[in-house]
Design a protein around this nucleic acid. Sequence first.
RNA 1: GGUCCUGUGGCCGAGUGGCUAGGCAGAGCUCUGCAAAAGCUCCCACAGCGGUUCGAAUCCGCUCGGGACCUCCA
Length: 501
Amino acid sequence: MPLKLYNSLTRQKEVFEPLNAPNVGMYVCGPTVSGESHLGHARPFITFDVVYRFLMHLGYKVRYVRNITDAGHFEEEGKVADDKIASKAILEKLEPMELVQKYTHLYHWAMDQFNNLPPSIEPTATGHIIEQIEMIKKIMQDGYAYEANGSVYFDVLKYNEDYSKKNQPYGILSGRNLEDQLDTTRELDNQDEKKSKVDFALWKKVPVEHIMRWQSPWGEGFPGWHIECSAMATKYLGKKFDIHGGGMDLQFPHHECEIAQSTVCNHEIPARYWMHNNMITINGRKMGKSYNNVIKLSELFSGNHHELTQAYTPMTVRFFILQSQYRGTLDFSNEALQASEKALRRLMEAYEWLKAQSFVAGATAKDDNLDTQVNTWLKELTAFMEDDFNTAKVVANLFEIIPTINSLKDKHISIDALSGATWIFAQEQLTLFIENILGLKVDSGANRQQLNSVIQLLIEIRKDAKARKDFATSDKIRNQLTDIGIQLKDEKDGEMSYTFA
RNA sequence: GGUCCUGUGGCCGAGUGGCUAGGCAGAGCUCUGCAAAAGCUCCCACAGCGGUUCGAAUCCGCUCGGGACCUCCA
């Protein structure tokens, strides 16, 4: 089956056909590094990490570009003073690049915690001021932008008039028409500079006291917030590339503006497939800065937040996100995260055990029905991913297989219930999907090896105690290990195993 | 106000014109010195009201509820 994905531009699932197979170009809008990333930000980065991983699994050579927005009107989060003088004092003390660096590091740390693969190219807005200025110049030359008082604005009405004739009106991606917007757009500052209130800034003039500013043909200022993605995507992926991704809230105006800018410069819609992940909600409401309801990633990992009853590991969060399909909203709650935590542990324990077994390829299956069923579940994993990256169904099937694995582990079934080939296929598919595609791994602490040796020693002592029917000693060892988070389990054959809570 | 999405069992969440989603929680059983795990079984839901259909949670209409975007926003 071919890979199908939902294209926001056409509003339907389409077969994925790369422009230049086996190469694939993918651009995903990255973070604005003026503050710490929160749970909501985790979703696109995990979603598109899985997309990236799956495309590579299919054999594509993917160039994954994800930008860092580090240019603009930045102030340290939580330190925005309403008093202009105080605000200026903060800005004077704080070097913007210092702030940007701090949050870039934190962002990279979080991506690493989530086991997200690094993108092929991670360009910064500040590193591409020249490209942005060149692009703005080109848009002006073509007559779709104008200067006003040191700022440059995109002429949306003219663009819409001309490109509507080519069936590409402004609003093609978000499905809104310009007349509605003319009625509804709120009044903002400097509206009088613009020809129309729907026009958006390509370059913003800034006052002298502003630290983050660059020279341009129109004086000192900084680039508007849409042009960086157009400039960097064009530079690294060309005038037309395969996939453009981001959060749903970026569809308008950000991606709409990108389309307009790139279309003027490059004469075509920049990307063929537009993918948008839905939002994470909390108490039924989108998690976002404007609602003041965010849980930062560091808070999530430490449990230090009033909405949290405990800390959650990065893998728990990743698994939580992958348990839903990326186009639906996902509601955060402690109950839901705790469910994910337990489910993930069950999955990983069964998987780790299976991975460590050796099976003989030639052995035949005694239980044909089960053998067939397990094979079906395993094969479906690929089909689910090919259907618009349905990780929820992938996870569900993995859980269908777990009882069979655990049954073998606990000797409820014998090894020849399934054929050797099926067991080996299970090992291969689970490794492929759990580790390589879903990007899940065991959260492991340092010094695990020494710790394992110590536990092994305790197990030997406990075995001796049990042999003597010295249950007091035996229970003491088990109970105290339980207290420090290590769960001992007596196996049927007298062996003992353990897991970390 | 405009544009659009959505309403699934205690909770989170797939799905879709007829066939068990899955996870977590809860109940029972098996195993066990006792536990814990694990396995098995149960809990069979699709906002309400109409309509289309042999058949709808799935399509259409209305009502009620929730949300997103229109402003920085993943």
